[in-house]
Design a protein around this nucleic acid. Structure first.
Lengths: 229, 229
DNA sequence: ATGAATGTGAACAAATCGTAAAAACTATTT
DNA sequence: AAATAGTTTTTACGATTTGTTCACATTCAT
């Protein structure tokens, strides 16, 4: 995205595509179109857009569902689109990991401004491997902050580091030795069970009923961070 | 280096390669290995790394010599590695044009943080950020003046510099080593607790009840400037 | 059913931090 | 050159937070 960003528009209303497309061409943004939830996910995978505009009401899969799906693997910026009457809570969208929220009908200026703002915000801390976001969970290794459902949860340095390590390798099991050498360092020789205690505390702090992710024990091997599918 | 940086590790100890390699893979950095000075220079020429980690004690050619060689033609960032006991003058390495200096044994966090800091520093064009303004707080590094609620608060040079450093990296935790390096310079040997004393004085001078910003301690890591807590 | 691996709470140990005060340093004036 | 004022650095101690280990309960795979 060194040059102009590529944007994916997901909405079942062709009029929205037409008007947004017009604005985007004017700004020299490129874009592609999806007209239902399933199509949206396909485009996300194939087009690798720099930003996704997601209407809440769509056939096949709602914007909420699509957002949740995307957040399982990607942190591509998402802007949620919703009609004025729709009783979708703003907070909900943002808890799902969306980056902004626009109510229809929108003005061209507003949309462009929001997109630019989001892209600026996302790009500022370059190559964001230190910031991870999932539905209802944010892990920031720059400020050592963990947020659950948008709420700051006080975690100790080791806790943040371990959680970040596991969460940045979704589904991959890491054994205790690996965790120790990656977090503590190559010259650490302590009890491997120490890891267990930290895992316990992390679970206590971040887990909530119905969380779409979890720290899973792989018996005889180690731990992994999983996202529900 | 639009994506992940490529790093060249030069050290005669395989254990160092193993552990650093582990950290780097985890960060999605790519890397290559050299085990003596001559080999190092060959790799520098062929691999064109984005950053070079250079152990001082190596067969064939010492890190110092290699560093000198490299600097004849390239400005690739170099981080010098040295064992705790080695009586190599810290200044020497940095006078040769190295960008930072890490003492073994090192922690993963430290190494990764230093690398990112160096790369960031190299890549970022200097902006004019000498004047910072927040609600109820102004920091001017041109005339070394700090104003709280419009009132001039007498601060010493070190105090202004530290405050400015932290305030120009909102939310980002900086550890004491980083602060010392950036304010005092790489050739400083003093106690890291010195930073604490300055932080204390800065807090005493600038803080007021209900200030929308604060200097926050991140236990086990360092300090950060936060807005809107 | 059994032994090994893991969950968990509590006790203990270690590391870190805030602070004040003393000491060292610097620059300037007498 | 000595005195002074201002600044910086070091040191020390107590308070606090965090990390580690242990003991025992529970779960798991065979």
């Amino acid at each position: 995205m060194a040059t102009a960003p590529h944007i994916l528009i997901c909405d079942d209303d062709p009029v929205v595509h037409e008007s947004l497309g017009l604005y985007f061409e004017n700004e020299h943004f490129t874009y592609s179109s999806a007209y239902d939830g399933r199509d949206a996910l396909a485009h996300v995978a194939s087009d690798k857009p720099d930003l996704i505009i997601l209407d809440v009401m769509m056939p096949e899969k709602t914007g909420i569902e699509v957002c949740r799906e995307i957040r399982k693997t990607l942190s591509t910026p998402i802007i949620i689109l919703t009609a004025k009457g729709e009783e979708i809570d703003r907070v909900l969208g943002l808890e799902l990991g969306a980056d902004d929220y626009i109510v229809k009908p929108f003005s061209p200026r507003e949309v462009i401004a929001r997109i630019k703002a989001v892209l600026r915000r996302i790009n500022e801390p370059q190559e964001n491997t230190s910031f991870l976001r999932f539905e209802g969970l944010e892990i920031n290794l720059d400020n050592y902050q963990v947020k659950v459902k948008g709420e700051l949860v006080p975690c100790t340095p080791k806790e943040v580091e371990i959680l970040h390590l596991l969460a940045s390798h979704i589904g991959q099991v890491m054994d205790r030795e690996q965790i120790l050498s990656l977090i503590w360092g190559y010259d650490y020789f302590g009890d491997t069970r120490t890891v267990d205690t930290h895992i316990k505390r992390i679970r206590q702090k971040i887990y909530y009923e119905g969380a779409p992710w979890s720290l899973i024990t792989v018996y005889g091997v180690g731990y992994k961070f999983e996202v529900n599918s």
